[in-house]
Amino acid sequence: MLKRTPLFPVYAEHGARVIDFGGWELPVQFAGIQKEHDAVRQQAGLFDVSHMGEVTVSGADAEAYLQKLTTNDVTKLENGQCQYSLMCYPNGGVVDDLLVYKLAEASYMLVINASNIDKDIAWMKQNLSGSVELSDISETTAMLALQGPHAEKIALKLTDAPLQELKAFHFLSDVSVSGIQALVSRTGYTGEDGYEFYIDQADAIKLWSLLLEAGQDEGLVPAGLGSRDTLRFEARLPLYGQELSQDITPLEAGLSFFVKLDKGDFIGQEALAAQKTAGIPRKLVGIEMIDRGIPRPHYPVFADGKQIGEVTTGTQSPTLKTNVGLALLDKAYTQLNSEVFVEIRGVQVKAKVVSTPFYKRKS
């Protein structure tokens, strides 16, 4: 039986096509991936991301515990601030990537990937130490993401809270959005500006309707997982299971900024420090097809007559209209403009290494 979010009942009203996504019945698209992608780039899109997991971490030793569990430096967080981070295995492979929200002193919320909720919580419990309490609030929490250049204008129609003053990777805990209590953050996963609304599941349908109504004149559309993937891909934002996994380290994925090797001991630190010292063997790069063909995940990549890696994500970019991909390659072949060959249905097709992100919004 597939799991459903509290917004499942309204999908059909908007013509959603649903798929099985990691055990969840979720909309891959409403009006179409290209339309939804363009709306987020130019106006705004509304995503149901209630399948994501939320775990609160509290207690006298919460900070020390998270400092040991995650790669980023939790001590740098102020109340009302969040950070992107990763949990690693002792060998440097990734358990999951996540967001850490500092709610108050000794009180945090972690936002984790839906398909990893059980595995992540088991890992957190396995590494629990000191005076720390974990609480999985995923089942009672809904999350809507409003993304795009018109997001701020739309959100401000529904609240008096100073959301326009909210900096990136900051949040307000107790916002009234047309009478609905919400935690509102400004992180995003599309390469555009936007907000996330964390609310009680019982309020999900009401907030969804209110936001769509408020965005009617701003070009707001419901958006599905398909456009969420193309948007995050163009902005070079990683997806767990593709750019990150238990077999791919954050350093190989180009995420060394979020790995503070000098912050003190954390799980995976030794292995990651050793990898950095020895030289990172593989690197995640952008590739662009020169010959016809679309690079898809797991397609092998060749150079000098041997396999040098594989595509992690690839598609025709809806914004650029070019066939591009992210690929994890042997470091020796990752110089810009290096010629490589992607094997597509048994044929090696010419491509070249290009710079990323493929898309960057004009600030």
Results as ranks from 00 to 15, higher is better:
residue 129 S to W: 09
residue 356 T to R: 01
residue 356 T to S: 11
residue 94 V to G: 02
residue 52 M to W: 07
residue 88 C to P: 02
residue 271 A to T: 02
residue 356 T to L: 07
residue 9 P to W: 08
residue 158 L to R: 12
residue 339 E to C: 11
residue 85 S to L: 04
residue 34 Q to D: 14
residue 151 A to K: 06
residue 75 T to R: 09
residue 163 L to V: 06
residue 321 K to R: 15
residue 227 S to Y: 01
residue 325 G to K: 00
residue 123 W to F: 13
residue 77 L to H: 01
residue 103 L to Q: 06
residue 184 V to H: 04
residue 283 K to E: 14
residue 74 V to I: 12
residue 342 V to E: 02
residue 282 R to P: 06
residue 260 K to W: 08
residue 179 G to I: 07
residue 175 V to S: 01
residue 106 A to G: 09
residue 310 E to S: 07
residue 42 Q to L: 14
residue 42 Q to C: 11
residue 338 S to W: 04
residue 173 S to P: 13
residue 8 F to D: 10
residue 39 A to Q: 01
residue 219 G to M: 04
residue 115 S to G: 13
residue 9 P to K: 08
residue 28 V to A: 13
residue 10 V to Q: 02
residue 90 P to S: 09
residue 326 L to H: 03
residue 141 T to E: 04
residue 271 A to Q: 00
residue 116 N to R: 15
residue 309 G to V: 05
residue 33 I to N: 13
residue 239 L to Y: 12
residue 290 I to F: 08
residue 181 Q to V: 10
residue 304 D to P: 10
residue 205 I to V: 15
residue 288 E to F: 09
residue 274 A to P: 03
residue 325 G to A: 13
residue 272 L to E: 05
residue 130 G to H: 07
residue 185 S to K: 03
residue 24 W to S: 02
residue 230 T to P: 01
residue 358 F to N: 02
residue 138 S to F: 01
residue 9 P to E: 05
residue 239 L to E: 15
residue 329 L to M: 11
residue 360 K to W: 12
residue 312 T to D: 05
residue 279 G to P: 01
residue 177 V to I: 14
residue 251 L to V: 04
residue 97 D to R: 00
residue 125 K to Y: 10
residue 182 A to F: 03
